[in-house]
Simulated assay, not measured.
Amino acid sequence: MYPLVAAGIPASGVVEVPCYAAASFNGRTAVLRPEVRRVPLDFASLSERDVELMVSVRAEEWVLRGLVAVDVDWLVGVLEVVSSGPQPRPLGVEVDDVWFFVAPLHSVPTVVGGRYVAVGLYR
């Protein structure tokens, strides 16, 4: 995980975000394991709205704690699972045995490294 808090989001610059893959998914929470690969995230690619969402407190208690990159096809698939049904749920992930609510950073998904999207980890 690339540690980051709302107060530390730069206006520009590129960081290397570690890639993670799902080891399991129970329909609600995915257990993520690190891959060897890292992908670039250019903070200048985030819109003002993207940054507003990153720094806001979600659901009155969830704040940004870090970033990871996940496979875009996997993310789309699991977001469909958690958003379908009578009561849509947020997507949860476990990274290093810690649970996080996860959301894409870009309101218009931006694929980097050919197949990854950066997501924020909130807790």
Score class of each variant (00 low, 15 high):
Tyr2Leu: 09
Pro3His: 09
Leu4His: 10
Val5Cys: 06
Ala6Glu: 14
Ala6Phe: 05
Gly8Ser: 15
Gly8Val: 04
Ile9Met: 03
Pro10Gly: 04
Pro10Gln: 01
Ala11Tyr: 07
Ala11Phe: 08
Ala11Gln: 13
Ala11Ser: 15
Ala11Gly: 11
Ser12Cys: 08
Gly13Ser: 09
Gly13Val: 05
Val15Tyr: 01
Val15Cys: 06
Val15Pro: 04
Glu16Ile: 03
Val17Ala: 03
Pro18Ala: 01
Cys19Ser: 06
Ala21Phe: 08
Ala21Met: 07
Ala22Cys: 08
Ala23Leu: 12
Phe25Gly: 03
Phe25Asp: 01
Asn26Pro: 03
Asn26His: 07
Gly27Cys: 11
Gly27Asp: 08
Arg28Tyr: 11
Thr29Glu: 14
Ala30His: 00
Val31Phe: 01
Glu35Pro: 04
Arg37Thr: 13
Arg38Ile: 04
Arg38Gly: 03
Val39Tyr: 04
Val39Asp: 00
Leu41Val: 09
Ala44Gln: 14
Ala44Cys: 10
Ala44Ile: 03
Ser45Val: 03
Ser45Asn: 10
Leu46Cys: 10
Ser47Glu: 09
Glu48Asp: 15
Arg49Trp: 10
Asp50Gly: 04
Glu52Gln: 15
Glu52Lys: 15
Val55Ala: 12
Val55Pro: 00
Val57His: 06
Val57Ser: 13
Val57Gln: 15
Arg58Ser: 06
Arg58Cys: 02
Ala59Lys: 14
Glu60Ile: 08
Glu60Asn: 14
Glu61Gly: 13
Glu61Pro: 00
Leu64His: 07
Leu67Met: 09
Leu67Thr: 07
Val70Met: 07
Asp71Leu: 04
Val72Glu: 10
Asp73Cys: 08
Asp73Ala: 12
Trp74Ser: 06
Leu75Pro: 00
Leu75Gly: 01
Val76His: 08
Gly77Ser: 15
Gly77Asn: 14
Gly77Gln: 14
Val78Met: 07
Val78Ser: 02
Leu79Val: 02
Glu80Lys: 10
Val81Gly: 01
Val82Tyr: 05
Val82Ser: 03
Ser83Thr: 13
Pro88Val: 06
Leu91Lys: 01
Leu91Thr: 00
Leu91Arg: 03
Leu91Asp: 00
Leu91His: 02
Gly92Leu: 14
Gly92Arg: 10
Gly92Trp: 12
Glu94Trp: 06
Glu94Tyr: 09
Val95Tyr: 00
Val98Asn: 06
Val98Gln: 13
Trp99Ala: 12
Phe100Ile: 03
Val102Tyr: 01
Val102Ala: 14
Val102Leu: 13
Ala103Arg: 10
Pro104His: 03
His106Ile: 04
His106Trp: 05
Val108Ile: 11
Val108Ser: 13
Pro109Tyr: 02
Thr110Asp: 09
Val112Ala: 09
Gly114Arg: 11
Gly114Gln: 06
Tyr116Ser: 06
Tyr116Asp: 02
Ala118Val: 15
Ala118Leu: 04
Ala118Gln: 04
Val119Phe: 00
Gly120Tyr: 02
Leu121Ser: 02
Leu121Asn: 01
Tyr122Cys: 00
